[in-house]
Computed example of a mutant assay.
Amino acid sequence: MRSKGIIMLVCFVLVVASGVFLLRHDSSSTVLRAERAKIVISFGEDLTDQQKRELMDYFYNWQKGRDRDTQYITVSNKEERDYLQGLIDEELIGSRAISSVYCETLDRSRGIEVETRNITAITPFMYANALSTAGIENARVIVSAPFAVSGTAALTGIIKAFETAQGEKLDEEAKETAHEEIAETTKLARKIGSNKAEKVVYEVKRQVVERNISDPEEIKKIILEVSADLNINLSAADIERMVGLMQRLNSLNMNITGLNEQLSGLERSWNEVKSTSRESNGLLNQLLNVLRDLISSLKNALA
């Protein structure tokens, strides 16, 4: 009888502990259900029905809990080519539109948040940097594909999805410049690696926008200084292309404060993930410690 009572007591503690954990978890879910978001999913036009279903299941992880209907659109390889033809290698554009996008508008000051899956040529920061150029603000973007792809179609899909969610078009010159930026960053990434490529493009862009520089020699000087700081050797052709890109960026009259606010979302979202993980682990560890203390006490009582 005494052993049976001990077992029942241990089970009770486990049930209570589980309840506390689920309560904490459910409270965050309640917050998600309270959000009101505009969600648009853009599928690559050349996906099979089965591949679309697989991506739908994947995107549902972010879609669930939102209380707005989701709109579905497609993006074609032709639409990609309208922006990227001549700017990027043919092998990266390909002949099919596969990469797809989940786009959700966020509250003001949230910034741009990007995650990718099965995207080989473009990093989340590359997307976010280009999206800020296009004029996109406060959006959660998930780029995915059913298998490994370059991801070049996704930028066109993201922009199209955001315009659908907002109900209005973005500035055409800004969209063209964003595609040029992603193309240039991708080219550099193939030479010097993604990490250095995204850093040099962003830092040069930041300085050009912040100081409102349009003179090509001044821009070239910034490129050389930033490259030296990052231990990067750029060819004359690379520098010439980047000067042209930065002149176009400067003509968009971008605001440096707005740019930094939009890109801060990436760092914040990562910190939130780490914070949530630490919080959950902390709670679980507290419960396990309580359980260990209880078992120890029961052992002492039986001794």
Rank of each mutant, 00 (worst) to 15 (best):
I6C: 01
M8R: 03
A17Q: 10
V20P: 01
S27Q: 15
S29R: 14
S29W: 15
S29K: 15
V31K: 14
L32E: 15
L32K: 15
R36H: 13
R36V: 13
I41S: 00
Q50R: 03
Q51K: 05
K52Q: 12
W62A: 10
G65L: 09
Y72K: 02
T74V: 08
E79W: 06
R81M: 04
D82Y: 05
Y83C: 06
L84R: 04
G86Q: 09
D89M: 09
I93S: 12
S95V: 11
Y102Q: 05
C103G: 00
E104F: 07
D107M: 05
S109A: 12
R110P: 00
R117W: 08
I119S: 07
A128H: 05
N129D: 15
A130N: 08
T133C: 09
A134P: 06
E137N: 13
I142A: 15
G151D: 13
G151I: 15
A153C: 06
A154E: 13
L155F: 02
I158S: 04
I158K: 00
Q166I: 01
G167F: 09
L170M: 03
T177G: 00
H179V: 02
E181V: 00
E184L: 15
E184M: 11
T186S: 12
I192N: 07
K196H: 07
E198W: 04
K199V: 05
V201D: 04
V201A: 07
K205S: 08
R206C: 00
R206V: 06
R206K: 08
Q207D: 08
R211H: 08
E218F: 01
K220E: 11
I222A: 04
N231V: 04
L234N: 03
S235I: 08
M242T: 05
L245P: 02
L245H: 04
L245M: 04
R248S: 05
N250C: 12
R268C: 04
E272P: 00
V273H: 07
S277M: 07
R278W: 09
E279S: 12
E279R: 12
L284N: 12
Q286L: 15
